[in-house]
Design a protein around this nucleic acid. Structure first.
Lengths: 129, 129
DNA sequence: ATTTATGCAAATCATTTGCACATAG
DNA sequence: CTATGTGCAAATGATTTGCATAAAT
């Protein structure tokens, strides 16, 4: 049976508070109120919570993975300058999982990540000139 | 000016021979004929060759990145059991780069990765029962 | 000759694991 | 009580980097 530890609750509420955050960002948020928590515990609880469906794991192709307070299916934009994640709430192409590939291959899901430059980083780049 | 070293040619032909391979797989293929090549050199040349457009870098969300002998835009299937990469040659959704997101955000590209189980791994799983 | 590239080992970064101790149920 | 979870430090795996030497132009 899974237990409801203090640490687990704290990690969950950090994810819910930060919305899109890396394990490291969550760790740094959590130690403000719980200075003795271990980073390994943060990682272990993020895994458990995402397996439970209480949070979602956001695949990343660059750097650290993110964790999402929203669990319904949606895609993300990631800024290539600062790494920050943004939601694309209105687009979900679930039908792509039924594209006709080699019949021996079973598609179980797909990942879509949009890359680009966020408003803040675009602004910063403008000033550099 | 970029030089045409022996090592660079050998890394390029390994990618072309293996079609979809990780840096490590390319390294192990290359040392068969060039036992003294360094893994750092393989990594450096893989970066250079993909920046030059001679090969393509395949983003991966799990484990090591792959390199592709095909440089035209297409998506991939990745087997979650063995990690192997397969092409989806007939589908490319370039128009997704123009979805209307926050006007401050500039989309520069997108990544699509299909996950599933390949024919060989499906077969192996069947036998386990 | 001079710049670019290489080989090696060490460094880095995200994440995972082993293990003795703590604690939720 | 006892199984599950925690903290710590060490291990892992992919990739990058510093630096002295080698090779391409």
């Amino acid at each position: 049976m899974q237990r409801n530890t203090h640490q687990r609750q704290v990690v969950l509420s950090a994810v819910q508070r930060l919305c899109h955050a890396t394990a490291d960002e969550i760790y740094h948020h959590v130690i403000l109120s719980h200075p003795n928590i271990s980073k390994a515990t943060v990682y272990r609880n993020l895994s458990l919570l995402s397996e439970n469906g209480q949070i979602a794991h956001i695949d990343s192709t660059s750097g650290a993975d993110y964790f999402d307070c929203t669990t319904s299916p949606h895609y993300h934009l990631q800024c290539t300058e600062c790494g920050k994640i943004f939601d694309v709430p209105f687009l979900y192409l679930g039908e792509l999982n039924h594209i006709p590939v080699d019949p021996g291959f079973t598609i179980t899901g797909h990942t879509v990540i949009f890359k680009g430059v966020c408003a803040l980083c675009n602004q910063k780049k403008g000033k550099e000139k």
